[in-house]
């Protein structure tokens, strides 16, 4: 099964999966704004509208969508990996981190 992903901005390291029922091993064709194609193999099941990594991302490195930072990697991410709350940390509204700093 060949499925489509959309990369919104040139600097993005993730793309949005725009089809249903993607499972591990499926081929995803990622299109960018200019119409360039990149083919990836999905490392896991990825739900409709969720994100797939299009390049390697090291822990602590920024994850970019719309050309902007949407969080940092909390684990090593390889192209084709599913990117969501399990490996992407938000950097905003982190009252938990502020409290840890206060207690330390």
């Amino acid at each position: 099964m060949n499925s489509i992903g959309l990369k919104v901005h040139d600097q993005d390291n993730v793309a949005t999966v725009c089809c249903e029922g993607v499972t591990a091993g499926d081929e995803i064709t990622v299109l960018d704004q200019a119409g360039n194609r990149q083919t990836l193999s999905a490392a896991a099941a990825i739900p409709y509208g969720h994100k797939i990594a299009v390049s390697p991302i090291a822990p602590g490195e920024s994850i970019r969508k719309y050309g902007e930072v949407i969080g940092t990697a909390s684990a090593t991410i390889a192209p084709g990996d599913y990117v969501h709350v399990h490996n992407l940390d938000s950097t905003r509204g982190r009252g938990d981190l502020a409290r840890q700093e206060e207690e330390a």
């Binding site: 992407l88 950097t91 905003r92 509204g93």
Partner: peptide, 29 residues
């Protein structure tokens, strides 16, 4: 932040997260 927890689940909501939004930054953009 004054509440001392991660804002996730409040924003983005569980529904947003299920819909693929991973962080408030992604939702905001």
């Amino acid at each position: 932040k004054a509440v001392g927890v991660d804002m996730r689940k409040g924003q983005p909501t569980p529904g947003n997260i299920e819909g693929g939004l991973s962080s408030i930054e992604e939702k905001s953009l």
